[in-house]
Write a protein that binds this DNA or RNA. Structure first.
Lengths: 164, 164
DNA sequence: TTAAATCAGACCTAGTCGATCTGATTAGGG
DNA sequence: CCCTAATCAGATCGACTAGGTCTGATTTAA
């Protein structure tokens, strides 16, 4: 129905890394089971997704018992753009707005007068994604939860870090 | 592959209305066969798409022999947003960013710390689509064709549309 | 009256999205 | 030195939809 939607994969990937960012001061890694339960993501699906994040250098894993995942970089060094492109490759609003500009699918068209519009729109949205880090989201979330008087309805409460 | 792509339908719909905008000074309507051939769009598919545009009041039709389509409004009164929403309904970057704000699919999540990011990104992209009219595209296209392949305009430069 | 056109709806199909199943591998704790 | 907890890898799978077609009815200028 609605157009231009991000995929479930991206949504889940971001929930996962945000989860990790929230716990980046603990030294214990988070298991896929824990993340899936806390963030409301199908466990097996999340497992696949985190693999992508690992292969793109955003997440580190510890195998075996007591294993799990941690961020490979500090939360302020991971942007939405990083995560989105790790999961789905380069963003292209339209087929002709390829990141690799050598694939001109519009060359046969006598006039692709729309190209600049897609480019501009994409530029604007990527500005947001490239400038928003996990640390930003964490800061906002903690801020909001403090204003709202703490987590009232959290199943299995967690202690937010006291200082930022 | 690439994420957040607009659909073929939107691309085709915009090609069609831009085609009509180019010929808005003639009084002869353009047939679907003509538009399809000139814009490189499958004819039968385009027929369906134009029906959507008609039902949303963007295009007017003349039935029977010598019939065809014309814009229902002046090119400077039709924006990309108009066309996009006519074809696919309201834009929502993520499921939780509904235009109808009463459908909160994220309420069960203890913390949807991403919502503001989607909202901000969507706001930015919709600013472009809402402020770009068919007249803007026409003006740019005519300008470019007059210069004839001139790389005079540096990529990234954005000439703000004249009016809303 | 006929040819040129739009209109309406069912229909099709290949691909992808979201997700699961199975099993192999790795490692910590007894 | 096993056993269990965990990640890793690949195949598989159903449902849905994007993209497009087919058929036929209706309208109208010439």
């Amino acid at each position: 129905m609605a157009v231009m939607q991000i995929s479930r994969k991206i949504d889940y990937a971001l929930r996962a890394v945000i989860h990790l960012a929230m716990r980046s001061d603990e030294r214990r890694p988070s298991s896929v089971a824990e993340i899936a339960a806390r963030e409301g993501v199908p466990k097996k699906f999340l497992e696949k997704i985190i693999q992508d994040l690992i292969h793109h250098g955003l997440v580190r894993s510890t195998r075996g018992a007591q294993g799990g995942y941690t961020l490979a970089r500090a939360p302020e060094m991971i942007t939405f753009k990083d995560v989105i492109e790790a999961i789905e490759g380069p963003v292209a609003l339209n087929v002709c707005v390829g990141a690799s500009s050598d694939t001109h699918e519009c060359t046969m068209l006598p006039h692709c007068g729309m190209l600049w519009v897609w480019q501009e729109a994409q530029k604007r949205v990527m500005e947001v994604f490239a400038s928003t880090t996990l640390a930003d989201v964490r800061a906002r979330t903690l801020d909001v939860s403090r204003v709202l008087g703490g987590g009232t309805r959290s199943p299995g409460e967690y202690a937010p870090p006291s200082s930022v």
